[in-house]
């Protein structure tokens, strides 16, 4: 274990970090825990200077170049400050990574975008999600060596949602129908990953604004599936997923009488618990269904 820790320190890894607007406000629990864990694991998250919102949607119309400007601009700035850019929010990750792929592969659009943002960016920043940093750069084995609390026996359902994975060819994240990285992560922190058929389903995304009654049904299907498969908690990487399956449980309770409710915990919060971070720094008061009773029951608080 000591050897692992010291080898981490020797490597001194530094990654540019794009928090995104939601992590700066409502999803501070995702952000703060992520920053705290990075410190313990010996890598530095250097916040990108001067960032803006990425737009929260990758434009699906072929002629919509305008919506590519914000993510392109922040990629171009990242290039000036480093070589690898990381995010915690799945949606930011999706928008930035897809934009990067497009700039790399489409010369005509690259020129248009560069002319518009008055920069010269070629698509050569590496974009990694925080989970990929843990797996590829830190290493799940090394992470195991740094654990301070034992989460053994805690049954957690990993909810991937859509944006980490799709489109599969561009995101290059994991298998499109049977991804494993989240399970490997849970294994590494001694949780018991719960396999459930809804792990790559959509939570309704922005329909929580457009058609909330529909988003509630999506969330219910996901949570019901996790519960049926024995989950005690669900973990997410995305503030939109989190909102839809955590906060919207209020509506689920109104519609479905016997729904027991289930805590939804950001993956960085779980990691923070496992790494022994002080619980106050993990901002559990921001989770709508309070995970602390479960953590207490497991002897972790």
């Amino acid at each position: 274990m000591d050897r692992d820790r010291s080898s981490l320190r020797e490597r001194h890894m530094e990654f540019l970090y794009f928090p995104g607007c939601t992590l700066n406000t409502k999803a501070q629990n995702l952000d703060e825990a992520g920053r705290g864990c990075a410190k313990v694991l010996g890598f530095e998250l250097k916040e990108l200077s001067n960032w803006t919102c990425c737009g929260a949607t990758f434009p699906l119309a072929k002629d919509d170049i305008m919506a590519l400007a914000p993510p392109a601009r922040l990629l171009a700035r990242a290039k000036e400050e480093g070589s690898t850019l990381t995010t915690l929010c799945s949606v930011c990750f999706n928008v930035i990574k897809r934009t990067n792929q497009l700039i790399k592969g489409d010369e005509e659009k690259r020129e248009k975008i560069n002319t518009f943002i008055e920069m010269n960016y070629q698509g050569d920043v590496q974009v990694l999600h925080y989970l990929e940093i843990l797996k590829r750069e830190v290493g799940f084995d090394t992470m195991k060596g740094a654990l301070k609390r034992n989460l053994q026996g805690m049954k957690v359902a990993p909810f991937y949602g859509c944006m980490l994975l799709r489109p599969f060819e561009e995101m290059e994240f994991d298998d499109k129908e049977a991804p494993k990285i989240f399970e490997e992560f849970l294994d590494a922190i001694n949780c018991e990953p719960v396999d459930f058929p809804y792990k790559i389903e959509c939570c309704g995304a922005f329909q929580s604004v457009g058609a909330p009654e529909v988003a509630v049904e999506c969330a219910y299907a996901i949570l019901n599936s996790a519960l049926r498969n024995g989950a005690e908690a669900v973990t997410t990487t995305c503030p939109l997923c989190q909102f839809n399956i955590d906060n919207m449980q209020r509506e689920i309770h109104q519609r479905y009488n016997g729904f027991p409710g289930i805590p939804i915990i950001y993956f960085t919060q779980l990691l923070g618990v496992a790494l022994g971070l002080p619980v106050e720094t993990l901002e559990f008061h921001r989770n709508d269904v309070d995970p602390r009773p479960l953590l207490k029951k497991k002897g972790l608080l």
């Binding site: 406000t25 999803a27 929260a56 929010c89 922005f206 929580s208 604004v209 939109l240 906060n247």
Partner: peptide, 22 residues
Amino acid sequence: ELSDEFLERIPQIALISGFRKF
């Protein structure tokens, strides 16, 4: 048409992507 209470409740990410789509 969105109520104050709802606006208080939802995260930016939902609002911004909703506006982009609708």
